[in-house]
Design a protein around this nucleic acid. Sequence first.
DNA 1: TATGATTTTTAGATTAGTCTAAAAATAATT
DNA 2: AATTATTTTTAGACTAATCTAAAAATCATA
Lengths: 223, 223
Amino acid sequence: MQVLSTTEENYLKSIFQLLKEGSEKVGTNDIAELTGTKAASVSDMLKKLAAKQLLSYQKYQGVSLTEEGAKTALLILRRYRLWEVFLVEKLKFNWDEVAAIAEELEHVKAPPLVRRLDEYLGFPKFDPHGDPIPDEFGEWSHTPRMILQEVSPGNAGKVVAVTNSSAAFLKYLDKVGIYIGARIEVVDKVEFDGSLELRVDGEKTSFLSREVAANLQVILHPS
Amino acid sequence: MQVLSTTEENYLKSIFQLLKEGSEKVGTNDIAELTGTKAASVSDMLKKLAAKQLLSYQKYQGVSLTEEGAKTALLILRRYRLWEVFLVEKLKFNWDEVAAIAEELEHVKAPPLVRRLDEYLGFPKFDPHGDPIPDEFGEWSHTPRMILQEVSPGNAGKVVAVTNSSAAFLKYLDKVGIYIGARIEVVDKVEFDGSLELRVDGEKTSFLSREVAANLQVILHPS
DNA sequence: TATGATTTTTAGATTAGTCTAAAAATAATT
DNA sequence: AATTATTTTTAGACTAATCTAAAAATCATA
Ligand SMILES: [Mn+2]
Ligand SMILES: [Mn+2]
Ligand SMILES: [Mn+2]
Ligand SMILES: [Mn+2]
């Protein structure tokens, strides 16, 4: 397990996330967009990471991570999410404020720090957005989840994760009273625009657009 | 208050510490030694920091910090020591294990993070080694202290700080039962080598070399 | 399948931080 | 005061990470 620069770690994590939400291979431009750089810079970095055996790369063909690359990415994600938990649980930040700070803290690599932080936080399994936290071996538990948008009317479930962590999205959820753990019943689904009418915690009635509902993951209650 | 790179911050903090423990001006070689670089690199950096008004510098004449440079250094030291407190108080690291980790964490600059960390820790005034923690304006309280080595036999005091934070020194203190807050009575001082015989917490009798006693600060009990 | 559009790579520069080796300045010692 | 020793600066080079502009490869579509 080699020592990587902050930049290399950021690229690796970005590639991992693109792979997770899409196809087998990711392209140079997608990486450039996510990392806020230009395609030319990405090309250089891909060669570097390929030389380090962290990804497999043939010119013009896109990249995928090697076993080692994926594991390395998971350990970075582990640090990122543990710090997110710390910031929300201990320092009382709101869940929409922690991304940028955790993005810096994740690069402090001292292994005893990560271990003790994990212990101090009570070995959390999920971060404030419901995303699973890999263990020290890069393993995580992934319970099958449903996208709220795909739940048909009459069913109820519990919100377990958000798949968008932008401040705008999270603030909106705060406003309409949706949080990780909230109980949601889908009352109706509008044919025209795919928006949902639902009850939150048995009380409040909300209307969510298709875009919003597509970014909420739930576990259905047995009916 | 400009944004500085990690490297610039490390130089600035090093220069501050050299100034605090010595003369009016510090030399290029001293800085190189403390930062683990070469004199040539230091010369370059001095020009850069002088251009940013953080230190005053004339070729071959050594440097001193400007008002702004000193304040900036104090704010870095603030972050460094707050993280030290966190690592010892919350994550249960020993006081000899925290230097390298805090040295990295100090560069995470998000201001709300520092504020909330301070609050979370209960606004500590001193770090685990007894060093004062500057407030958000770069101010700190400095009670007058005595060096244990200079306390004459028959007097007693309380250990308030160590002026060496090397793991070797701190582990040795652990071994002989000396800690911040320990009550110490100077029983005798050996003329020959300046070593001290003393009682710790009224119980154990210890013998400390001149070097060790020179790195302990105490406040005398009124006699 | 040729042609145009898009994506990706290369070529060549730039900046921050570092180094070694040589030159210049300052300090110490005959 | 001259000479030697030490310290500091400069000159020139290197690496990591970035960019723009141009070339090359792939993809899409007529
Ligand atoms: Mn990051
Ligand atoms: Mn998260
Ligand atoms: Mn540092
Ligand atoms: Mn300290």
